[in-house]
Write a protein that binds this DNA or RNA. Sequence first.
DNA 1: GCCGTTTTCGGCCCGACTGTTTTCAGTCG
Length: 590
Amino acid sequence: MSLNQNAAALFARIGQMLELTGGDRFRVSAAAKASRILKGLTEDLGPIAEAGDTKTLVAIEGIGKGTAGKLVELAQTGTISEHDELAAKIPAGLMEVLGIPGLGPKTVKLMWDDLKIESVADLKAGIADGSVEGLPRMGAKTIENIVAAIEFMESSGGRLHLGIARPIALRFVELMKGVQGTSRAEFAGSIRRGEETIGDIDILVATENPDAAREAFTSMEGVSRVLASGETKSSVRFGIGELGGRFKDLSGPKEVQVDLRIVPAESWGAALSYFTGSKDHNVALRKVAIKRGMTLNEYGLFNNSDDPGDPIACESEAGIYAALGVDVVPPALRQDRGEFTDGHLPHVIELGDIKSDLHTHTVDSDGKMTLLESATIAKSRGFHTLAITDHSKSSAVANGLKPDRLLAQIEMIHAFDESFNGLTVIAGSEVDILVDGSLDYDDDLLNALDIVVASPHAGLRAKPKQATKRLLKAISHPAVHIIGHPTGRLIQRREGLEPDMNEIIAAAVEHDVALEINAHWLRLDLRDTHVRAAVEAGCKIAIDCDVHQPGDYDNLIYGVLTGQRGWLTPELCVNCWDHDRLHAWLRSKR
DNA sequence: GCCGTTTTCGGCCCGACTGTTTTCAGTCG
């Protein structure tokens, strides 16, 4: 594990443990912030911290002297003494109790101090024997909520994938739009920002009939429990099983919390901005407001005075950003990763900019569609180019093509292309990058292909140095256009390779190779922070759906959101190029 | 613990909901 990820986990834990020991709340949030920042960095701080270079470390926003010192300590000794000291005082099971929704540090500390509750099991026993009931402010209703929350936590195995949560959010939005009196409905929160995993779903509604909205929301089919139903906010648990069996092999949450916010139509923009977040972005945005003598809340942007009067801006997000004198920040960029400090924002890619898919499979390997079926969908989406890239011979389980079958397929695709007016279909392959970095076909065959996507499929537990070497060798092969899902990670399932991304990106720039954002929501590989580093280096990026079945084309949005989160522009994304420019680039490797 | 157009001290975003309270604490986002 890299120092960043290791440190991020430790600081997150330090923050939680400080809460439980009654530490200063600003120190708590500083530790949590340090954790988030470290998670989002692209450059590994390992060598810097090991060298004791605190000057470079404190230059990072949110990292001060204290955190820098602990990073150095971690790099040099393998541990942070503050963490170990806290961990010695706090039972491990207590952290799990803190994870129960609705239970915060105050309550957990009280239970620990007064009742010696040190685990979820202790808490259950304390509820059963009535001792928890004896605590101050602990009534029957609160205990009922804790029992339900424990059940929820035990049935939910972590966060939801974006590709599962977003369709649910869209269903809620459609439902709310159909309720009488609704003028606007939209999802906000982490789904709108395109985060790769989702904690809960936020739905925003502007309506003349709040009671009808609330009623429709809490009684939607699939709602298993109503947690709250107030004037402006309702919360429910929604059963994911209702979606059917397509994701049944995915271990994950069985339920998700969905929040409905009913907001005044006139402050729609302020509310949408507020509930889209991220939290860090909101804090940064409010600081911009404060600097300008204004106050920002979910109702609007106001002058800072005793009698603020009418808002300066509130109806649209764009109006609020404009009134604050900053660029409008697309939702995916709202991460507090420099969107206010790096001058003007780039024009990031949008779904409509994508004009080709360069990584798709057919029935010839492990796809479910024929060439004709896939090409028909590609054409209906307005693409000018479709690359067929079935698996190579070593991917036996995926029915990879032996050389003779590939030669026959190339011939077939080239014949097909002439008959499918308006869409150029090109012959390619998703060629395995073998463990030693060599490719799965000989050079003559590779050069017979219009496009080569080289991807790692096996040996994904290799050490970082070996992984770097392997990918560098593939990148330097003159026939390769794109490196497919470069790390091979599966979100919440498999870590994948951890190569030195800076070296990979530099090599890709040197050899004119594009790195892929695989748009499948289980992959999103490259991930957002890697994309950001690649974009900063001027590296070409491909966004492809890795199509196996018809619905996979719909995954494109997840790839685009990931690109946006990495500040990707159409100029650097080969799928956004027009026909002639794309094909000139492809031919330049032949 | 972090930070600085009030710069090495003294602040640190802001409001809703619940459940338990007679005015508010705790939690969440």
